[in-house]
């Protein structure tokens, strides 16, 4: 039965609408940056917000809610890759939109050239957890505390792991440049602290 106006159900709906409006593009962007499979991106998008809707009362508020959504999207995508399926008609239109955009070349995973290709290649050679740390900082713009919230670890652990991931990327870049024996830019990244 519908709740009367002003009842908690309406407040719940309003909170979800605000959460959705503030984060829909960010969560979709997060997913499309992690997978080339647009069907999975659409399904996981719907699943992530469905979980948020069901567990709205447990969600943190403000900016931390987005971290919760990133973490949920990350775990749900991992589960999809392991074979769990939660396909529903909910995501049908989004699936179709993304597939169409893909086919129409409105969206294609980029192919990098030159220095960018080198960075991309070095990045892809890193272990997935390191890539995720670097990406969360570089692509989603997270700080240490936010990283910790997404990954479910302490702020200090996030800081240390990020430092190691940056070092690994710098090492990968250096070694690839040594192979090419050209003047490296990786060293500069490492020493000026500007890497990832």
């Amino acid at each position: 039965m519908p709740s009367p106006p002003g009842a908690p159900a309406d407040d719940r709906r309003r909170r979800f609408d605000e959460l959705y409006a503030a984060n829909q593009h960010q969560v979709l962007g997060y997913l499309l940056r992690r997978t080339d499979n647009t069907d999975d991106a659409a399904d996981v998008f719907a699943e992530t917000f469905l979980i948020a809707w069901r567990r709205l009362d447990d969600l943190p508020v403000g900016q931390q809610a987005r971290m919760w959504l990133y973490g949920t999207a990350r775990r749900t995508l991992a589960n999809y890759r392991r074979g769990e399926r939660r396909r529903s008609a909910l995501a049908d239109r989004l699936r179709a939109d993304l597939a169409h955009a893909y086919l129409a070349h409105a969206y294609q995973p980029p192919e990098f050239e030159g220095e960018m290709a080198e960075i991309s290649s070095a990045f892809r050679r890193l272990p997935e957890p390191d890539r995720e740390l670097l990406a969360l900082v570089a692509w989603e713009g997270l700080d240490h505390g936010q990283l910790a919230a997404v990954l479910g670890c302490s702020r200090n652990a996030a800081r240390i792991r990020l430092h190691r991931a940056r070092r690994k990327l710098a090492d990968e870049l250096l070694s690839s440049q040594r192979r090419r024996s050209s003047p490296p830019h990786a060293h500069a990244y490492l020493t000026n602290g500007d890497i990832a």
Partner: peptide, 21 residues
């Protein structure tokens, strides 16, 4: 510029534009 930033496959704004209104 952060090198990883430069290889971002797609921005949030671009992602939003892939869907029909």
């Amino acid at each position: 510029m952060n090198p990883v930033t430069r290889i971002s496959p797609i921005s949030d704004a671009q992602a939003g534009m892939l869907t029909t209104p």
